[in-house]
Simulated assay, not measured.
Amino acid sequence: MLRSWRFWALLSAAFAALTAILAKVGVSGVPSDVATFVRTLVILGLTGAILAASGQAADLTRIPGRSAAFLVLSGLATGASWLCYFRALSLGDAARVAPIDKLSVVLVAIFGVVLLGETLSPSHWLGIALIAAGAVLVAIGA
């Protein structure tokens, strides 16, 4: 099970759900950018501890230049996403913000096909369309 991408993806979804609820409570009365900074410090500390405990810290010096460039760009995109997400949570309901945020699933599918040359079957596209429709319904619902 620990080698299954599905297992880790489901855990990611569960933690993302907790993130939305905990962040919604945490951002109350706190500027959203400050809340994002605190969250980032916690993540930095946690991942640093994991690298140190697992002996992977030395691998930081062995990251190829191309990988480093794309990881930096990914980090910038993550930061922008978190800043926007916390701002949205400070302004809206978690139950409405999170589904809109999950439109990222739709965009990943499109970007994966267009930019990475990945292929999706008709049933995959149907699932992507249903995710998009669900997000829209949650966003416009009363």
Rank of each mutant, 00 (worst) to 15 (best):
L107Y: 09
L41H: 06
A129M: 07
R62D: 10
K102W: 07
A49M: 13
E118R: 10
P122D: 11
V108P: 04
L41D: 05
E118L: 01
L91Q: 12
L107R: 07
T47G: 10
P99D: 01
D93F: 08
I140N: 01
S123P: 12
L22I: 13
H124Y: 03
L130G: 04
S123E: 14
T61P: 09
V25D: 11
G48D: 00
T119G: 06
S121M: 09
V113T: 06
A9M: 11
F7G: 05
G55F: 13
A129P: 10
A135M: 06
G55P: 14
F15D: 04
S32H: 15
T78I: 15
R39G: 00
A98F: 04
R39Y: 11
V34Y: 12
I140M: 00
L107Q: 10
A80Y: 15
T47H: 03
A69V: 05
T19I: 09
T40Q: 12
V105F: 15
M1D: 09
S32T: 12
S104D: 12
V27P: 04
V38W: 13
G55L: 14
T119H: 09
A35Q: 09
L115M: 08
A88C: 09
T78G: 05
A69D: 07
L71V: 12
G26D: 08
V97K: 05
V113P: 06
A20P: 04
A98N: 01
W5H: 13
V72A: 13
T61A: 15
L11Q: 05
S74I: 07
V106M: 05
L10S: 03
L46K: 13
F111H: 03
A9K: 02
G45R: 12
A14H: 01
W82D: 11
A132I: 11
A109L: 00
G79I: 10
A133T: 12
S28G: 14
S67F: 04
A132W: 02
I43N: 01
S32K: 09
A94T: 14
A13F: 08
L46V: 15
H124I: 03
F70A: 06
L89A: 04
V42C: 10
A129T: 08
T78V: 13
S67L: 15
G55D: 11
L60M: 13
L116E: 01
L76R: 08
A132S: 00
S123L: 15
A129G: 05
V138R: 03
G127C: 06
D33Q: 14
K102D: 04
A69T: 06
S81F: 15
A20E: 06
R66K: 14
P99G: 04
W8I: 01
L76C: 13
T119S: 10
L18D: 04
I63F: 10
A35F: 07
A13S: 07
